[in-house]
Simulated assay, not measured.
Amino acid sequence: MTAAPSATSLRAAADRLVSALAAHADPEYRLTVLKRLVRRLGEDRYPVFLRLLGVVAESDDPRAQRLLADTFGTALRRMDLPGGALSSWGATRLPDAAGPLDASAFASGQFFGGSPRRMLGPVEYLTVWHLQRTQRTALSADTFRTSLARMIALLNQSEDARTLYPQKLAVDAQNELEGAYTRATRERLAAIAAAWKAGRTPDAIAQAALDAGAGDAPRGWVLRDL
């Protein structure tokens, strides 16, 4: 198991990311840099990417925040968000092939014939991680609220991101995509979109997401922090 990165290493990595983005004036190339980082981290380490965004969001460097947020604005205009994948255990299926099972199926999480996965942007990823049964232990409500508010505060540094992201979430909330979002998740996404469009503060938006589905977390879940 890979050890969690230290606070020092996260700050150093965030600084390198901002420097790499600042070195290029082309917004499209900046998006390429961001997506390349996500690919290098790998699917299982998308939460590390979210933590890097959080480091920038909590910094006292508004230029770095705008640079990163504007890159997400470019991604939203292209409908190409740097995303991570979460499995959807509710939509799993048994293997089609007969015969003995390959032991690697257990290790890779594909025992049920390949759990459907969909690439999720940062806000959607946090929401699904908090609400749905995935390959990860669910996020606690407090961590979800804090992480979501921090993410929205960062994205609000870009006019494009502030305008386009809630529009995307509102559309996602209307789509019953197979294996992607449960009803509870769609309700939360709709609440986030509505509060964000209304210009509420990041903390109020995060609280609106929790209030939209208060009491609907499945019992017996083990919760963890980001």
Rank of each mutant, 00 (worst) to 15 (best):
L223W: 02
V128L: 01
G42H: 12
A103E: 07
A141W: 07
D172Y: 12
D160C: 06
N156S: 12
G113T: 01
T163C: 08
R93T: 13
L189H: 04
A212I: 09
T32Q: 15
R45P: 07
L68T: 03
W129A: 05
G179L: 00
M79I: 00
L226D: 08
D80T: 00
D44I: 04
A57C: 09
L10F: 04
R118G: 01
A212N: 05
A161Q: 15
R40L: 15
Q132P: 01
G220W: 04
L169W: 13
L155A: 06
T71W: 04
A107Y: 15
V38K: 13
S158M: 13
A105R: 14
L50E: 14
T71A: 07
V48G: 03
L17R: 05
A195N: 11
T137D: 09
A64F: 10
D26R: 00
D70Q: 04
A184S: 13
S87E: 11
R117A: 00
A214N: 03
V18T: 14
T185K: 00
I152A: 13
T2K: 15
A217Y: 05
D26P: 13
V56H: 03
E187W: 13
P116G: 04
L226Q: 08
T146F: 06
T137P: 00
W129T: 03
T92L: 02
R117M: 01
D216V: 15
A25P: 03
A3I: 08
E176H: 10
P202Y: 01
T201N: 03
R133W: 12
I205F: 00
D142F: 02
G220S: 06
A184G: 03
R136G: 04
G109Y: 15
I152Q: 14
D142P: 03
Q207T: 11
Y181T: 02
L67W: 08
W129K: 04
V128S: 03
R77W: 07
G99A: 05
D80Y: 00
L120E: 00
R219Q: 02
L131I: 01
H24F: 14
R77S: 10
Q157G: 06
S147C: 01
V222G: 02
P166Q: 15
D102A: 14
L34N: 06
A190M: 12
T92E: 11
P202K: 08
A217N: 06
D15F: 03
L31Y: 07
A194N: 10
F49T: 12
R11A: 15
Q174I: 05
R66Q: 12
R150V: 02
A194D: 14
Q110P: 09
G83W: 09
A7P: 12
A97L: 02
V48M: 00
E43I: 07
A153L: 06
A57D: 07
A217E: 11
V38L: 11
A12S: 10
Y181W: 09
A75K: 09
L52T: 05
A105K: 10
S147Q: 04
G54A: 10
G215N: 02
A85F: 02
F106M: 03
Q65E: 04
A180H: 06
L50G: 15
V128R: 04
R150D: 04
R51Q: 09
W196F: 13
V222C: 00
T201L: 12
A214F: 14
L154E: 12
G42C: 12
R133C: 09
A138K: 05
